[in-house]
Design a binder for these strands. Structure first.
Lengths: 152, 152
DNA sequence: GCCGTACTGGTCAATCTGTTCAATAAAGCA
DNA sequence: TGCTTTATTGAACAGATTGACCAGTACGGC
């Protein structure tokens, strides 16, 4: 992956609210030539520095107002099996392997507390998953952002 | 916030890779009138169903290849103070208040394990934060996605 | 001093945008 | 059932934007 430089960050920051801002507008707003902005936008989309656009969609707008983290303990021999099964659950948004006692931390969403129970059950039943512990998020204290890092 | 319907989701799914796809192309690809796509795009950006574009930027592309979750225990009387302080740390990407024993779960990134130490120190020093416990992510097993939910 | 790379500022035709409009579904309600 | 409201369609327009070029310039490394 390509590291983004200061100009890239300025472009991204300017696109923050409206990613469909015309290139010309961007260019004059940033004091750059149109071609420059254009080529950098192209490079950034190619380089894989950006998540797919759908990652912008708030789960709440898809009816998933409930969020939680599920910690899972694994049968280490069946790691890949478990991951494949998790990948097939749409409510699983993300999954990390932390250092420490838990093997996986799984970000999930659901339509209701009851639905969350169903989802965590579905996770518990994945092959290779031995034990899970679900902790529901009561509040989103700071919504996901990268703005601070862009301003450096 | 407005709930997204099937057409909205189809539009978003079509925009998944390239959010700058021209409206005309979208319309014919989805078999819709241009005006329809246009008004829905407008409504979606207004309705707050989408995160800012900058949330697409991978921290790794900003030199933050190290990710972690910091669990924090709070002095409950100083909750807002703590949150305000956390908001000022650019490496804090997100923060949730879960049900259970920990008060806050803080998503952070850093340039290196050493830098992660610095960041978690900075969190520990926030007013109102009593104790923290950092667990570094060794691997991103499933990168953030909402694709599954969009296809419903 | 030379080279490669990136940026600038300019042009071009083709396409797209924002905006209107009347006509046509579709959906909710009496 | 019939009426009202709302969303969608297809069409038109002028004006702006796009992608593709180009030659000239700035800059860092060798």
């Amino acid at each position: 992956m390509q590291e983004l430089d200061a100009t890239d960050k300025r472009i991204l920051a300017a696109l923050d609210d409206d990613p469909r801002l015309p290139v010309m507008v961007l260019a004059q707003r940033l004091g750059l030539a149109r071609g420059t902005v254009q080529s950098r936008l192209e490079r950034m989309s190619e380089s894989g520095a950006l998540r797919p656009n759908s990652s912008r969609v708030l789960p709440a707008a898809l009816g998933r107002g409930v969020a939680a983290a599920v910690s899972a303990e694994l049968d280490q021999h069946r790691l890949n099996e478990a991951i494949a099964a998790l990948r097939d659950i749409p409510e699983v948004l993300e999954c990390h392997a932390p250092a420490g006692d838990t093997d996986l931390i799984i970000r999930v969403v659901a339509t209701s507390p009851d639905d969350l129970y169903r989802v965590s059950e579905e996770i518990r039943l994945c092959p290779g998953i031995v034990r899970t512990s679900t902790s529901m998020f009561l509040r989103e204290v700071i919504p996901y952002r990268t703005t601070g890092l862009l301003r450096e």
